[in-house]
Amino acid sequence: MAAVDMTGVRKKDANVSDLVFKYMRPEHLPHIWCPGCGNGIIMRDVAQAIENLKIDRNNLVVVSGIGCSSRAAGYFDCSTIHTTHGRAIAFATGIKVARPELEVIVITGDGDASAIGGNHLIHAARRNIGLTVIVMNNSIYGMTGGQYSPTTPTGDYGTTAPYGNIDRPFDVALLAAGAGATYAAHATVYHVPQAIKLIQDGIAHKGFSIIEVADVCPTYYGRKNKKGSAVDMMRNQKENFVTAAQAHRTCRSRKPGKRP
C-alpha cells in the first residue's frame, strides 16, 4: 500500500497497479464498499477512461453527492469535492461555469441523481453544460440500508417496500436524454470494456453527457430480492443485457426480460 508523508509525496509499493496508483489515492484504499459492490469497478472504469484520454489530473475535478456512490470522489487523485445529497450536479455547474477549462466529472447514484437531485439533473441536461455524469445505479438506497429508490423495479423489495415496490422505475439515462442531454448511455459493471469506452466518449463529448451504469448491490438489493451473490448478479447482467441495436430488435419481438 502507499503512504503519504508530510510533504504529500506518495510512496508506491508493489501491491498497487499502475492505473490505481496514478489516478487514485491508495492511502485511502481499500475503499469502504461491501464485498462484491460494483462501485469499485465503475471507479476503475473512470480511471481507465481518464488514462485513455490523457487528461491532466490537475485539471480534473470529481464531484459527488451523498450515498454509497459519493464516496468515490475522495478516492480519485485530483480536485475532489463530496457535496450535499442530490446537489453534486449544481456544485459541478458552478465549477464548470467559473472555470470552463476544467474537466468536471460527477459521480452520483440513482437516489442522489434522480430523486433528491432530479431537478438538477434535468436542468443540467437542458443547459447542455459540459459535465460528465456517471450514475452508479444499484437500484436501492445502500448507505441507509436498503430502501427502495426511483430505479427499484416495480414489485421488488426494499426495507421501505416490504410488500413490493408499487412505483414504476426511472430510466435515468433516458430521463436525461428527454431533458436534452446530448450524450446518454447505458452500461453495466459486467461489460467493462464497453463501459470504459462509453465513459471515455462521454468525457470527450462537448456538452452534457450521462452514463448510467447498472451496478450490483449484493448486500441490500441482492439480499432483499433473492438475487444471489455478487457473482450471480453479474451473471444476470451478462445474460440479460443487450446492446441498443439488439434491444431494438427484441423490442419488436417482445422477448421478455432483456434490458438495453
Partner: peptide, 17 residues
C-alpha cells in the same frame, strides 16, 4: 499476475469470470 491479499474482500467475481 499480482494479488494484493490485504485489499481482497473475497467476493469471488474474479474467480467466477
Amino acid at each position: 499476475l499480482i494479488i494484493n491479499t490485504a485489499w481482497c474482500k473475497g467476493c469471488g467475481i474474479c474467480a467466477a469470470f
